[in-house]
Design a binder for these strands. Structure first.
Lengths: 229, 229
DNA sequence: CACATCCGAGAGCAGTGCTCTCCCTGAGGT
DNA sequence: ACCTCAGGGAGAGCACTGCTCTCGGATGTG
């Protein structure tokens, strides 16, 4: 259902122009430097006019955040080859995430860095945010179903909410809370390593960042119990 | 050598007052909301006068960053009981870091969140930043020297810079690059987990965050080869 | 005492997010 | 065909920011 009325068409178009320009500005000056007035200026319209499309700067940011999650999620999905063995898949997805992060550092910082001041992520961002995690979760679930996961230890700690089950591989005898908890740990670890690298906490620590990252991701795969063949 | 001249005394005092007030403001409104003018106002002085003490807002931030690293580092050091077994020590330090992070969320975000826009951390922050890592490194080194680490695998990938050796346990036959790399991974994972929790990426995922964190940290300890007894 | 330095205050510049008011255009209903 | 009324643009304005510059007064040093 493309917007039939000319008004709606124009509105959608201008909204897209604004977000595109904002994304450009985000990529160059970062989230904190993103200025509504600047995009308006560059777009040749009064700053007040932009408010017809985005009620506030935070709403623009929310748009960018959602788009960012989607862009990252898509990159992860595209990088995943369901036919490949588990560890290979895991590594491939991790590499894709890292690659995306290095190509879009400001966007990455917006997603996984400090929350924007006084800004609470609205619920709308959740579905997009889950996409990346879901890819890793699928790798885990597929491995379980292929019998490539060690038997569950049964050390269910009750630390996890049942809500995460579907996104972390789904139900399977080899997937108990302990495994899922380790998957969650691995997930946050992936972003921890990437963040550390991107935000400069590793500067001077690794001589070969690519090799270090690959080794680390393989270790994480091993932590959650993934193995090939 | 306390500053004898009254001028220097007053200067140090006012500098301290400014940082204290800035820290307060940081704790309430966050780094992005930190306003030099507000500090000046609350201090009863003209905004321009503050610039006599801090050439720019970023310099104030640098001060807060260094203090933050030191505060966190001290918390970690105080939490470490060198007499305890390795995993206990590891867990204790991790818990202290998490505790500090939860008590100082904005300060934590300033240290480990997105880098401040257009702001490059000066070299001064490095020594303070290393303190936390050094505590974990010491736990690793002590474990190695106590013979509580599995023998090195010898899978030296050359991914690490030799600069990290001293801070990651020092020289020891049980500490090769593979172990150190895993320690570095564990380090970033600790902060990845805490960041995810603090920045809301775990919301709804863990029913018992404390238990989840402890389990995760224990898993990480196992990953680097730590074990008790 | 004289000189130099330090340091506070005020005005001012350029920029920000956001609001309010005014006005015109275009779409929908009668 | 007309009238109405929402949609959307422009401009002025408010309160705020970081930062600079200039002007005096206080303070320490030769």
């Amino acid at each position: 259902m493309p917007p039939t009325t000319a008004r709606a068409r124009a509105r959608a178009e201008i909204t897209a122009e604004i977000t595109a320009l904002a994304k450009e500005q985000l990529a160059t000056v970062g989230a904190a430097g993103l200025s509504l007035r600047a995009v308006a200026r560059e777009l040749g319209m009064a700053s007040s006019a932009v408010y017809r499309y985005f009620p506030s700067r935070d709403d623009l940011l929310t748009r960018l955040i959602i788009d960012g999650y989607d862009s990252l999620g898509e990159a992860a999905e595209r990088a995943d080859d369901p036919a490949a063995p588990p560890v290979t898949r895991w590594l491939g997805v991790c590499r894709a995430v890292r690659r995306w992060a290095r190509e879009h550092p400001h966007e990455y910082a917006l997603l996984y860095g400090s929350p924007v001041p006084g800004y609470r992520a609205p619920r709308d961002t959740v579905p997009a945010a889950i996409r990346v995690g879901a890819v890793l979760g699928r790798v885990l679930g597929d491995a379980a179903r292929a019998g490539l996961l060690p038997p569950a230890t049964g050390r269910a700690t009750g630390a996890l909410s049942p809500d995460v089950t579907p996104v972390l591989g789904g139900e399977h005898p080899a997937l108990d809370d302990a495994v899922r908890a380790r998957a969650l740990l691995a997930w946050s670890s992936v972003f921890g390593t990437i963040s550390f690298e991107l935000f400069g906490h590793f500067t001077g620590a690794s001589a070969d960042p690519d090799a270090f990252f690959d080794d680390a991701m393989r270790d994480l795969a091993g932590l959650v119990g993934l193995r090939d063949a």
